[in-house]
């Protein structure tokens, strides 16, 4: 059975004015379905760049990258849009919810992007939020929610389309200790019960126990 994620010799170089930053230097990575991978490392080590590449938000300068059978490295921008809709769920440190939409519509947005009809999308979004303990918060905009609640909405949005991979970029970076535990328990539960493959990058060693595998990314390479 092929790997869910297969990366060989991934490099990504950014040019900021005269400065050249080698964010990834020949990274190899293989992830199977159902894994919970924790990627640790210092800031600027290339963690977010790796997630952006796996999620189809960016393209490698060289190397090959296949996710769920899709060639991310050579796909067109339009194909990458479709790839994200079908295979990827993102969770960010700062939640990245749309401030003018309530919790239900934020979650429904992911389904609408996929072409789900309006009513069905909103119904499914409300169900998911209820499953995540937010039944009474569906009509609230992000500003009316706590950090933990916002992150749960963001996770609900990320899994609404039943993605193959959930990519979490510092998912507990903006919440307190108790909320960190709640969010990681939720991700672990999704991984265990729904079989969602999770890759999370973090600075926080407290997240290590949640992973089935730990990787350390430093200066653009796995150490």
């Amino acid at each position: 059975m092929p790997r869910l994620i297969s990366a060989v010799g991934l490099t990504r170089v950014y040019r900021r004015g005269t400065r050249v930053v080698e964010a990834l230097r020949g990274v190899d990575l293989e992830v199977d379905r159902g894994e919970f991978v924790v990627v640790m490392g210092p800031s600027g080590g290339g963690k977010s760049t790796l997630l952006n590449l796996i999620g189809g938000l960016d393209r490698p300068d060289s190397g090959s990258l296949h996710v769920a059978g899709f060639d991310v490295g050579t796909a067109s921008q339009r194909a990458l849009d479709g790839f994200r809709r079908r295979h990827i769920g993102f969770v960010f440190q700062f939640f990245n919810l749309i401030s003018t939409l309530d919790a239900r519509d934020n979650v429904a947005l992911a389904l609408l992007a996929r072409g789900t009809p309006w009513k069905a999308a909103r119904r499914r979004a409300a169900q998911l939020l209820a499953e995540f303990g937010l039944a009474d918060r569906v009509g609230h905009v992000p500003a009316e929610l706590s950090g933990g609640e916002q992150q749960r909405v963001a996770i609900a949005r990320a899994v609404a389309t039943a993605p193959d991979v959930l990519l979490a970029d510092e998912p507990t970076g903006d919440v307190d200790g108790a909320t960190t535990t709640a969010i990681m328990d939720l991700l672990a539960d999704l991984n265990r019960r729904r079989g969602v493959t999770v890759i999370t990058v973090t600075h926080d060693p407290a997240l290590i126990p949640y992973g089935s595998r730990l990787l350390t990314l430093r200066d653009g390479t796995f150490g």
Partner: peptide
């Protein structure tokens, strides 16, 4: 601008 970025992350095409 950030909202546009979020929509792009979710897979909305520029045309949409």
């Amino acid at each position: 601008r950030r909202d546009i970025g979020i929509a792009r992350v979710l897979g909305f095409a520029p045309r949409s």
